[in-house]
């Protein structure tokens, strides 16, 4: 029997490739971030520009917009690999698809969730978020978007064989995002009130771990089914 590279090598090779592709297709990297920043403009325009109105809704609004940005970037996670035949090469390589899905989801997070979390203080300023909320905002988004990427990978894998799966993907994933949204936005709200918010962040971290363990299995299973169509 032959040996194939260990999971860590497969993971790094896949991860590097994702970053390389993103570096070549920069617009795909920047689009969710620009979306994140530009949609924020709608909130004062659509509601009211004064700080008294914006401050109380800022945590929830920033969280909703971050969630939508991740959601919009999900459909490309497996799509292009499916179209050019790379996905079947991954399945037939003999590697456990679990690690490859983790590599792809992690890369997706590095390319969307991480920059979103780092950019979020700018949005906080624009939305008159009180000073106490910033640390909670960044930390909750770091863990929260991690879960969103892993859970989203399931939706992306389930709809990969469908030509126009984008809207369907959102439809099936939105209910699964509810706990992350609730915990994320409430951690910021709690922090603004000056109360301890560590509990929510701990729960977000727990969800992140749980999705890290379970979601790649479901996504890997879905990919194998999608290839069989």
């Amino acid at each position: 029997m032959s040996a194939i590279p260990g999971p860590h090598r497969a993971l790094t090779a896949s991860f590097k490739r994702e970053l390389l592709v993103a570096a070549r297709a920069r617009s795909e990297f920047f689009n969710p971030l620009i979306f994140f920043l530009s949609i924020t403009m709608f909130v004062p325009l659509g509601i009211a520009p004064d700080a008294q109105t914006l401050a109380p809704i800022a945590p929830g609004m920033i969280w909703i917009i971050a969630l939508l940005s991740v959601l919009l970037s999900l459909d490309r996670v497996f799509q292009s690999d499916f179209e050019d035949g790379s996905l079947e090469q991954m399945v037939l390589s003999g590697q456990s698809l679990y690690w490859i899905v983790i590599a792809k989801s992690l890369a997706h997070w590095v390319l969307t969730g991480l920059p979103l979390a780092l950019l979020s203080p700018i949005l906080g300023v624009m939305m008159a978020l009180p000073g106490e909320g910033y640390v909670a905002l960044v930390v909750s988004l770091l863990f929260g978007t991690g879960s969103l990427c892993f859970i989203g990978a399931i939706g992306s894998a389930l709809t990969v064989a469908l030509r126009r799966g984008g809207l369907l993907l959102s439809l099936i994933i939105i209910p699964l995002y509810v706990p992350v949204l609730i915990l994320g936005s409430s951690s910021v709200q709690t922090a603004v009130l000056g109360e301890p918010y560590l509990g929510q962040v701990a729960l977000l971290a727990a969800i992140w771990l749980l999705s890290l363990m379970i979601a790649p299995f479901a996504a890997a299973g879905s990919i194998k089914i999608s290839l069989g169509t």
Binding site: S2, R17, L20, D84, G85, S86, Q89, I100
Partner: peptide, 30 residues
């Protein structure tokens, strides 16, 4: 672990160079 498969879609990422594609391929396949 002993298979090489070349499909209709050959699994070449157009955004990467042939060298990068091979590095990735052998990175997961050996």
């Amino acid at each position: 672990s002993t298979l090489l498969y070349l499909g209709h879609q050959v699994g070449i990422k157009l955004l990467m160079t042939p060298m990068e594609n091979l590095l990735w391929y052998f990175g997961i396949n050996g």
